[in-house]
Amino acid sequence: MMLQIAVCMKQVPALNEGKMDEGMGTLIRKDIPPVINVYDLTALETALRLKEEYGGKVTVFSMGPESAESLLREAFAMGADRSVLLTGPEFAGADAVATAYALSQAITARGPFDLILCGRQTTDGDTAQVGGAIAQFMEIPSIYWVSRIHAVTPASCTVTALTAKGHASCRIDFPCLLTVERELAVPRIPGLGAKIAAKKRQPEILTLQELPDRDSSHYGRPGSGTRVIKIFSPREPAPAAAVSMKGKEAAAYILEWLDEQTEGGIR
C-alpha cells in the first residue's frame, strides 16, 4: 500500500495575547516568536506513523509568508517527503473560509491524495473551521476530532472520533479528510542530523498562477466573508463570597440566592 498523505500546517504566534490590528481585523503577530501550531504537529506525526506502518509519502502544505519556510524545514526534519508553501500577496488577510479554499486549491494542484490531515484547530484563530471547509471545497468526506486511527486499507480507514456526547467509531473511504486531536499522537522531535540535513532542503513554492482557480478575488481578504471586529477575553466572574452554614439554614439561604438570580422565578 502506498498512501499519499497531505498534511496542512500553519505557523502561529507562540503566545496568543489577543492583540489585534483594528484596521485589518487580524491578530498582531509581530514581536511574538512563531511556532508550529501544536495541533498540526499531531497531524504530521499521525501522517508519519501511517507512512511508517503502511508505506507512502507525506506532503506538507502551508500558506503564509516566505518566513514560513522554517516550518516546512522542521517538517522535513521530522520526516516529511515533500513540502509546499502557498505564498503571495493575494493570500494575505484570509479568513478561515478563504484559507481553506486556497489550501484546497493547492492540494488539488499537487494531488491526488488519499488522506488529508489537519490539526483540530489553530491556536491563533481558534476557529476549527479550516479542515472541514477544505473537505467541503474538495467535495470529499471528512471526520473531525479524530482521537484514534484503528485500521487502514487501500480504500479506507477506521477511526474513533470525539462527538458532543462521547466517541464514535466510523469507517471512511479515501479520499477523505480527518482533523485530529492532540491525544492521537505525541509529535516526535527531530534528530540533530535530520535537522541539519533539512536545512539544506527547499520547500516547493506555489503561487496563485499555478492554482486551478487563478481569480485573485477568491483569495485573501477579498475572498473572505468574515471580518473580525474585536478580540477580547471573556470577563472573569467576580469572586463569590464563601459562606458556611448547615441544614435548614443553608437550604433557605440557597433558595433565597437562587430566587435572586432568577428574579423570583424559582418560587
Binding site: P33, I189, G191, L192
Partner: peptide, 8 residues
C-alpha cells in the same frame, strides 16, 4: 538526539 530551534 533531539533538536529544536527557536525560542518557543
Amino acid at each position: 538526539t533531539w533538536a529544536l530551534s527557536g525560542e518557543a
